[in-house]
Simulated scan of single mutants.
Amino acid sequence: MAGIVSVSRKDLAQRRKKLRRQQQKKIIQTIWRTLAASGLAGGLLWVTLQPMWVLKAPAQIVMTSGNQLLSEQTIQSLLVLSYPQSLWRIEPSVIAETLEQQPAIAQATVSRRLFPPGLMIKIQERFPVAMTHTPAGQSTTSCNTQPQSSENFVKQPTPSCPQNSVAQSKQGDVSLLDASGALIPLEKYTALNPTGKLPSLKVIGLPEQYRPYWTQLYQAISQSSVKVMEIDCQDPTNLILKTELGTVHFGVPTAQLPEKIQVLVQMRHLPAKFKSRQLAYIDIKNPDSPLVQVNQNQKINSPDP
Rank of each mutant, 00 (worst) to 15 (best):
K197V: 08
G172L: 13
Y213P: 05
T134N: 01
L177K: 10
G196D: 06
Q163D: 13
P212F: 11
S165N: 13
E208W: 01
Q171M: 04
F153R: 14
L119E: 01
T215G: 08
Q216H: 01
Q209T: 07
L183Y: 02
P207G: 09
L206W: 12
L177M: 12
P159Q: 03
S200A: 11
A136L: 00
T141P: 00
T132E: 12
L206D: 14
K197Y: 03
A182R: 07
T132M: 14
E187S: 06
I121S: 06
P185Y: 04
A167T: 13
G205Q: 12
G181C: 05
S180M: 06
T134H: 00
V203A: 02
K155D: 12
P194F: 15
D178M: 05
L198A: 03
S142R: 15
Q138R: 13
T145Y: 12
A136Y: 00
S160D: 05
N152G: 14
T145I: 14
L119V: 03
P212E: 13
L177G: 10
L206S: 14
L217Y: 07
T134Y: 00
L119R: 08
Y189R: 04
G137Q: 13
T132A: 11
Y213K: 05
P207N: 12
D173G: 01
R126L: 08
P135A: 03
L201C: 14
T190K: 11
L192E: 03
E151L: 15
T158D: 01
K202H: 13
E187I: 03
V166Q: 15
K197H: 08
Y218I: 11
Q124E: 06
L217I: 09
P157S: 05
T145S: 09
Q163S: 13
P185T: 08
S149Y: 02
E187K: 02
Q168P: 01
P128G: 03
S142Y: 15
G196T: 07
G196P: 02
T195A: 06
T141S: 00
I123Q: 08
T141C: 00
P199I: 07
Q146H: 05
Q209E: 09
G137H: 12
K122R: 02
N144R: 14
A136S: 13
G172N: 09
P207W: 02
D173K: 11
Y189E: 00
Q148V: 08
N152A: 09
M131P: 00
N164G: 15
P212D: 13
K122C: 03
G181P: 02
Q156N: 11
L186W: 02
P162R: 11
E208C: 03
Q163P: 01
P159R: 01
S150L: 10
F153T: 09
G172C: 09
I204L: 06
S200W: 00
P157L: 03
D173A: 11
L119S: 02
T140E: 15
S169V: 07
Q146E: 06
T215R: 11
L176S: 10
R126M: 07
D173M: 08
T140K: 14
